[in-house]
C-alpha cells in the first residue's frame, strides 16, 4: 500500500490488508498504481453501475483519478484544434462554447448521456475506455479525426480513435495504460456536424441506433464527409461508403438517402431488449439521413438545436 499512497490529506487511512484504494494527484502516481494492478475509476457511472448490474465486481484495487488536475479541462491548441482531458465531464463538453460551435456533433452526444447527474461526473475518458458499441461520443470523435494519448510506465503513445476499439467493451490499450487525453484537429471552414440517436425516451437512454455526420461545404458542394454508426456494429465505426456517397453532392435529400442506405448496408446489428436487428438496420438509414441533413444545414449556418436528437424526430 505504501507504494501507492500519495500522502495526500484526502486519502483514506488504511487499517487492514485486502482491497486497496488510492486517489493521487499526478499521472505518474496513477500509472504507478495501474502497473501494480489497480483499475481506474473516475465518475463510476459505468464501472460501479456495471457491478450493481452483476456484469463485473467493483475491482479490488482502485485508483481514483478525479483529483489529477492535468487530466482535467478542455483547451484550444495552437493549430486551431482542441485538447480534452480524460476527466472532462459530459456536462463540461455539452456547455463548452468552442465545442458547440466547431465540434457540434460532440455537444449533441455529450448532452444526451444519462441524466444531468450522470453528466456531472461521467467523463469523456470513461465513455471511450468502456468501449461500448453504443457510446455516444465515439462517433463524433472518430469523425472529427480524434487521436487519444495513452500513457504507462513504458511511455506514451498516440493513436487514432478508430484504431482503439477491438470489440464490444474491448480496446487495444494494455491494462496498465491510462487514457490521458483526446485531441481533435481543426476542422475546415464550412464544416457542419451532427450526432443523433433513435431513442425511446429523452434521458437515461442508451442509443438504439446512432449516427454521426461531419460535412464540409465549399461552393455549395460537399468536399469532405465523415459518417459513423453507433449501436449498429461490434464497435462504433466509420462508414466510408456513406462518405463517398456524399462527396461531390450538394448535400441534398437524395445524397443523404444514399448515405443512409450505405450506413444500413454496413451495419451488423444485434437483436436485444431495445430493438430487433432488422429494425435497427432499417432505422440506420433513417437516422443517418437525418444527421447528414442536419450537418449540411449547420454547415450552411442554419440553426439546429443542441442536442439534435429531439428536434430531428419526425422533423426531416
Amino acid at each position: 500500500m505504501s507504494a501507492l499512497a500519495s500522502g495526500s490529506t484526502a486519502m483514506g487511512q488504511a487499517t487492514a490488508a485486502g482491497p486497496s484504494y488510492t486517489a493521487p494527484t499526478t499521472v505518474d502516481d496513477v500509472i504507478a498504481a495501474m502497473a501494480t494492478g489497480s483499475r481506474v475509476v473516475a465518475g463510476g457511472t459505468d464501472l460501479v453501475v456495471g457491478s450493481r448490474q452483476g456484469r463485473w465486481p467493483v475491482p479490488e484495487h482502485l485508483v481514483a483519478i478525479h483529483r489529477v488536475n492535468s487530466l482535467r479541462g478542455i483547451r484550444p491548441v495552437v493549430d486551431g484544434g482542441l485538447w480534452l482531458g480524460a476527466t472532462a465531464t459530459h456536462g463540461e463538453i455539452a456547455e463548452d462554447a468552442t465545442i458547440r460551435e466547431r465540434y457540434t456533433a460532440l455537444a449533441d452526444a455529450s448532452s444526451i448521456v444519462g441524466s444531468r447527474a450522470t453528466r456531472n461526473v461521467g467523463t469523456l475518458g470513461g465513455n471511450i475506455a468502456n468501449a461500448s458499441p453504443a457510446a455516444e461520443t465515439s462517433g463524433p470523435l472518430m469523425c472529427f479525426g480524434a487521436t487519444c494519448m495513452l500513457e504507462s510506465r513504458n511511455g506514451r503513445r498516440e493513436l487514432p480513435l478508430d484504431e482503439l476499439f477491438s470489440g464490444p467493451g474491448r480496446t487495444v490499450a494494455a491494462m496498465d495504460e491510462l487514457l490521458v487525453s483526446v485531441s481533435l484537429p481543426a476542422q475546415p471552414a464550412g464544416t457542419g456536424s451532427c450526432y443523433a440517436r433513435l431513442e425511446y425516451r429523452r434521458q437515461m437512454e442508451i442509443a438504439v441506433v446512432g449516427a454521426t455526420a461531419v460535412v464540409t461545404l465549399d461552393g455549395g458542394q460537399i468536399t469532405a464527409a465523415r459518417v459513423a454508426i453507433t449501436s449498429l456494429a461490434p464497435t462504433v465505426r466509420r462508414v466510408p461508403e456513406a462518405e463517398a456517397a456524399l462527396i461531390g453532392s450538394t448535400g441534398d435529400r437524395a445524397a443523404a438517402e444514399r448515405a443512409g442506405e450505405a450506413a444500413a448496408a454496413a451495419s451488423l446489428p444485434i437483436d436485444d431488449v431495445r430493438a430487433a436487428a432488422d429494425y435497427r438496420r432499417a432505422m440506420a438509414a433513417v437516422i443517418t439521413r437525418r444527421v447528414v441533413q442536419a450537418a449540411v444545414d449547420r454547415a450552411r449556418g442554419e440553426t439546429v438545436s443542441i442536442p439534435a436528437s429531439a428536434s430531428l424526430h419526425g422533423a426531416l
Binding site: T9, A10, M11, G12, Y21, A23, V41, G43, G44, T45, V48, V49, R52, V58, L62, A64, H66, R116, A117, T118, N120, V121
Partner: peptide, 21 residues
C-alpha cells in the same frame, strides 16, 4: 440522488471514498 459540491450525483454509483474533501 445527493448533491456533491452542489451538483446532483447518483450516490448508488459513486464511491464513498471519492467524496473526501
Amino acid at each position: 440522488m445527493v448533491l456533491l459540491d452542489g451538483e446532483p450525483v447518483n450516490s448508488c454509483s459513486y464511491l464513498a471514498l471519492q467524496t473526501l474533501g
